[in-house]
Design a protein around this nucleic acid. Structure first.
Lengths: 237, 237
DNA sequence: CAAAGGCTTCGCCCCGCACCGAAGTCTTTG
DNA sequence: CAAAGACTTCGGTGCGGGGCGAAGCCTTTG
């Protein structure tokens, strides 16, 4: 039988520098060579070679704008597959300690096109606990209600073939949160409504004061948000 | 943020020899060092080193029985993730030519614990076309009926949290077939009923004469089975 | 046009590892 | 106990590729 060439993908993700770049890119935004080089802790020329390799493997696409080259993941399938991969990969040993230090829902981030991290997990949990979301046959199914409008989600009339609220395994929490069209709508709305914003400096997302209020009033998430009100820096050695 | 160490997984699948071993192991059975060495085209001592690495990465577990050591994938998540990976990986260029030569549903194989390959895809298609299976919200949902008993499937009363009939992307067909508990039941029943059997020599599965009859009578799959009645050899350079 | 900034190409070093042959360990078989 | 078989360990070789400095290309800015 013809073997699938996943050794090419393996080759691409076999290096720690490239892994760090991919983690950065998982956020969904496009990054320049320089940014990714600094994230990986290597010089620009080394990063350039890495990005070329990732491009050849089909994981990343580049777009030239002016004198800058922007790199981003080539598609949602790639982000999804990497998430899946991370779920079976051993976690960096520093993780637990760092997480405790950060505390609560401090770490808020996006995963390609939807919200991820502790807040996203808590959000999904709250929606399930309050009966707005059912977990069934490996999928999330929204129950008609007022919350959805409040979260900026328009629930489709009929269930289609593709999942509207796809469960996504969070690679740090190892628990499910909401991806798919619904996840995208929630993140888009949260940014547009000013609940979240991208910090000027550093990665991740910040929960604003109105964001706190909205999440507390709609889902009682105030308590969980108490300990960490801002995105922690994601930097490490 | 602590990065997930999927570079460890990447390292493990970055080599073509290990990829070939993993493809072999995807069948779901346990293999000896020697068998995997021959599948990868390397000497036993090289295979030994590879398997040690795969073990350290957590993809494979070894079990010693007598003077033989049997290796198998460490779990369904691994098989599932590898499938997913294969779906975004470029396919070996030899594939199309080989597939044409083989023709029809000649290539029948198992994917960890369920049926895969063209036959599995055709099976899922037929079940959907005849209204026995609905594709909805990213999942397969069985409709109560007589076919299920005929296929050796007991449909659960209530839908649970975990999927009963999980869609699985076939890495050669790039189309969906049935995995999850239902997939396992179908394969188990097909083997017990003598519809399929493992060939004495070589890999894959063979469709027996009773198997042909059953698939034809229940799902009209006779036509598709016509061109290839036996498992083709999966050997290549 | 010159200078500056972002990126890539080139050349080089060096580490890691895939590979095999030979030898060693352990188990089964005669 | 000796022989055979399956696997592993060890030693050595050669290739691939990650890393950086220096130089070159292209675009923007003064």
């Amino acid at each position: 039988m013809a073997t699938p060439r996943f050794d090419i993908i393996g080759q691409a993700i076999a290096d720690a520098s490239r892994t760090r770049m991919l983690c950065e890119l998982m956020e969904g935004r496009a990054f320049t060579n320089k940014e990714l080089a600094s994230a990986a802790g290597v010089t620009p020329q080394t990063a350039s070679a890495h990005l070329r390799l990732l491009q050849d493997a089909g994981l990343v696409v580049a777009e030239k704008r002016g004198r800058c080259v922007f790199h981003r993941l080539s598609g949602p399938e790639v982000a999804h597959t990497l998430e899946q991969l991370a779920a079976i990969a051993p976690m960096d040993s520093l993780y637990r300690a760092q997480r405790r230090k950060a505390g609560g829902l401090a770490e808020v981030r996006s995963c390609y096109d939807h919200l991820a991290g502790p807040l996203a997990v808590a959000l999904a949990d709250a929606l399930i606990a309050r009966g707005h979301l059912r977990e069934e046959a490996g999928g999330f199914h929204p129950v008609a209600g007022a919350v959805w409008a409040g979260l900026g989600v328009t629930v489709p009339e009929h269930v289609g073939r593709t999942p509207f609220a796809r469960p996504c395994m969070d690679w740090t929490e190892r628990r499910l949160h909401i991806a798919g069209p619904m996840g995208r709508q929630i993140l888009t709305h949260a940014l547009e409504a000013g609940w979240l914003r991208r910090p000027v400096r550093g990665r991740g997302l910040e929960v604003t004061a109105p964001g706190h209020r909205a999440l507390h009033e709609m889902l009682g998430l105030g308590g969980v948000l108490a300990r960490g009100t801002t995105s922690k820096s994601c930097e490490e050695a």
